[in-house]
Nucleic acid binder design. Structure first.
Lengths: 181, 181
DNA sequence: TTCGCCATGTAATACGTTACATGATTGG
DNA sequence: CCAATCATGTAACGTATTACATGGCGAA
């Protein structure tokens, strides 16, 4: 999966592993996450497969950068992936729900403390989505008007991130109320 | 993670790998998923670690069953896991959102077809959650009244599954409308 | 001078998925 | 007779996570 995300971003412009990590964290992080180690190793593999090529860029008083670009094979692989529709639902893995499922015998105070912390984290995420990422999309839309159509789709996925966090907070609030009794 | 789910279920009663897979599929499947292969191999590992013990049960005209039970060490490990609160958010991995993010250049008809299918799948899931799993919880609550307190927590996690699917469908409908233009 | 950011990677491990493999019983 | 369900597992592969490892620059 991470392979296609990297191909997708390189489709916009050549980038380094570091750039890709930054881009990922500021765009699709609401629904996909990767560590830099995975990105660097995947890029190496992709180069071995001929999907990307890299060139090392030396700059004085600046760290060296390995810039990756798509090859025709990479572009083809990316398009082939986009063309074959998903036919299944993505499985969810929610550790908090697992813990709550088994929490009947725990001290309610400890359960509540855990839920309060999660509420804070999700509230923070929601605020981020509402401001930061929206800004990033708008800025990109102005800087790169040829990506206006892309920005429409980015906004759609951002809506999902916002919807998800709103739903989560709503559920947390109801759950907290019920446990507080 | 799957280790703690297995410990959690075995805390209720001794079970086989098959039983655990069935139980998992009919209870925490809204927020955790595992293949039978992973369950069987994890049980073996857990036995090696001394968290569970198994005994082979032979029955005529019935397949043999390997029944696992918790040891004191297993119970202790499970309680220790429950006691240390989660301090981070579970990362989301939503392939559909990734695909949509990069879908600006795709044929809108193909994108819509993909979204229609997802809508069907999620609608089906929501119906399942509303009927089947609720029934399972009620039935269990009647059969095992000592688990009444547990059932409260099971219902809370079911609410999350329902909330999630409702949010997802809502988002899908809005997204479809916008792409249909 | 210390912290954070830029920038790169490797190694080891852990976890998850797909495919392979078998065989009995029950119900339509 | 065929499909589904019960019941168990292994092997190979693929993906993800944690930890290890390095070093320069700029700002407070």
């Amino acid at each position: 999966m991470i392979k296609y995300i990297l191909l997708g971003f390189l489709n916009y412009q050549p980038m380094t592993g570091y750039d890709l990590k930054q881009t990922l964290d500021h765009s699709v992080s609401h629904f996909w996450h990767a560590y830099h180690s995975q990105i660097y190793t995947t890029l190496r593999q992709m180069e071995a497969e001929g999907l990307v090529v890299s060139e090392f860029v030396y700059a004085e008083s600046q760290p060296d950068r390995r810039v990756y670009s798509l090859t025709d094979a990479g572009r083809a692989e990316f398009n082939a992936w986009l063309e074959q529709s998903l036919t299944e639902m993505s499985p969810i893995k929610e550790e908090l729900a697992v813990r709550l499922f088994f929490s009947a015998r725990r001290d309610p105070k400890s359960v509540l403390a855990e839920l309060y912390l999660q509420r804070e984290l999700h509230q923070k995420k929601l605020n981020e989505y509402r401001i930061m990422t929206k800004d990033a999309i708008e800025k990109n839309a102005i800087l790169a008007p040829q990506l206006a159509q892309d920005a429409v789709f980015w906004r759609l996925t951002l809506n999902m991130g916002i919807g998800y966090e709103e739903m989560y907070l709503d559920w947390l609030n109801k759950t907290i109320l019920q446990i507080e009794r």
